[in-house]
Nucleic acid binder design. Structure first.
Lengths: 117, 117
DNA sequence: GGTTAAGTTCGATTTTAATCGAACTTATGA
DNA sequence: TCATAAGTTCGATTAAAATCGAACTTAACC
């Protein structure tokens, strides 16, 4: 299981190496859009994974945060037993201008995509 | 199979009813990003599905165009035996400002997303 | 040391998406 | 009318993602 390190750590990609489809992929899930929105709206700009209101269990939640991290969207720092996550605003805006604004203004619910008959 | 209608027709969603994750989903596939880029760069702004260079067969191609159509990204009109597709630029820019610009500037190849070990 | 709180990882299952071949429609043009 | 070109739809297969429960780590606190 590789917990061998003394301290757990997260790795964050360099944004220049993140490509568009990866980011789109990350934001294709309503759950993750909700996370990013919550973080953007959070005072202090960060929030414990635990505190973001979601209807999924811990494991799934952890997974979604990892996807967002890998897509360069968020930064996570360790704070005792909890981990505080924030949106990499400045960097991300520089790399993908306008995207975060779209997330911010997307307030609607996100029904599962469905083709018409 | 429902080919009963005299003339084949496409339905295009009203953009206000398209939500962000649906669009993101549509653009999460490298193949589809390539299509949108090609259309944006095409002279006359439109192109026959057939003409967009892709490494997939007809059926798959048709599928990708349908996904883009359902996400409100493109408009398809019938022209004899072929169908000309164009990006719904104005409308789409009004609904999701900046997104098309991102697609346009994304020139890199799009490797399949992969988590680090 | 024991307990709890917060996350992570694994393994398995289910869901959703991508892909293709084959059979089909439709319009065009010889 | 027959053939062809351009797409679509179906059915099946494969490949990714989402989701969960359970076992685990790590830090904090008593």
């Amino acid at each position: 299981m590789r917990y061998s390190q003394g301290v757990k750590s997260y790795s964050h990609p360099v944004l220049d190496e993140v490509v568009l489809p990866t980011v789109m992929q990350a934001l294709a899930d309503p759950c993750r859009v909700a996370i990013v929105r919550a973080l953007l709206l959070a005072k202090d700009g960060e929030m414990a994974c635990n505190k973001v209101p979601l209807k999924v269990v811990k494991a799934t939640r952890s997974h979604h945060f990892a996807v967002l991290r890998d897509a360069g969207l968020v930064f996570t720092r360790i704070d005792g037993t909890k981990c505080m996550t924030s949106v990499r605003r400045k960097e991300f805006n520089a790399r993908f201008p306008g995207l975060l604004d779209l997330v911010l203004m997307s307030d609607k619910a996100a029904p599962r995509k469905k083709r018409k008959a």
